[in-house]
Amino acid sequence: MANPLNAFEKRKQALQSLKQLRRPNPDKQKTCPACQATIEKKKLMSTFYVCPHCGHYLTLGAKRRVRLTVDKDSFKELGGGIVSTDPLDFPEYQEKVRAAAEKTKIHEAVLTGVGRIDGIPAAVGVLDSRFLMGSMGVAVGDKIARLIEYADRRDLPLIIFSASGGARMQEGILSLMQMAKTAAAVEQFSENGGLFISVLTHPTTGGVTASFASLGDVILAEPGALIGFAGPRVIEQTLGEKLPEGFQSAEFMLEHGFLDAIVERKDLKKALSQLLKLHGYRSQAPSRSITNFLPGGKDRSKEQNFTDRTAARDADRSADADADADSAVSADASDDRFIAKQIDPEPDLK
């Protein structure tokens, strides 16, 4: 008769190897965090990274979001090298940033650039929640403000996908100031007639909700996304009780009047394209370089009236350029250098 203990050990081993077999191969498979089902990665691109078993929206990194949103090979990154130096000398912060950059393949928590959506040129920004919770520090604020100014100068529509826990703690008060900076940039862009479509994805909270992300002419959200200002845990602590089901969800925000629409991920590109067309932006034949984009995918020339406001703005811009030229700080690059360095690969255009 076999030793019962041995039999037990054998059974345990067999079970373990079976488990080993069933464990997803991280190169080819992914486990859905909601239903634990194993999903073939190949299949995910066609389902827009939505779990085919339970419909859960998987986290989309910035690069993948761009791939799902803009026309193939039409995206050019802008300002990809802008990073912050650690203003608080915060312990282990730089290591964390480096690790996040390695994981997300971007140097900061937002990816900014230009691309085409169904042929229509647009300035596109995407926050990556895998990069320190998509938090906004000095570099993120600066990249977003630059993107907005870029769209303004070239009359491009602006689309920003938010996914952020809010202001970046490790950069202290300067992170907070990025709320003012980005809100002011959006407001100026809006006053000049630019279209801003803000897309809120899971999660959009804190200082991002309380600045540019809430200032879209059109505000869309993905189903089920957490959207709010205060974090759910903070509110629970204040109240001393659990939050009601669905509180601060996209559906909740829609019901309370803060969204235009909730759009399924698979339909987002179509919705964006439709909105761009409804606002008068037209597709353009792909040119070799984005610097060849005609100024104004949209014709606003007849509306131009040069009020003192515009004049003051232009004066201010040239003052900015002077200040930039005087500045010895290399990070404070003038826009021309910024563009030349980042998005002008064709030597003949230099």
Binding site: P87, A331, Q342
Partner: peptide, 18 residues
């Protein structure tokens, strides 16, 4: 407000996209 934090920025010299 646009200038706040600017001096804590730097531009990495990137040859190509990551």
């Amino acid at each position: 407000f646009a200038a706040m934090g600017k001096r804590y920025l730097t531009n990495l010299d990137i040859e190509q996209d990551l």
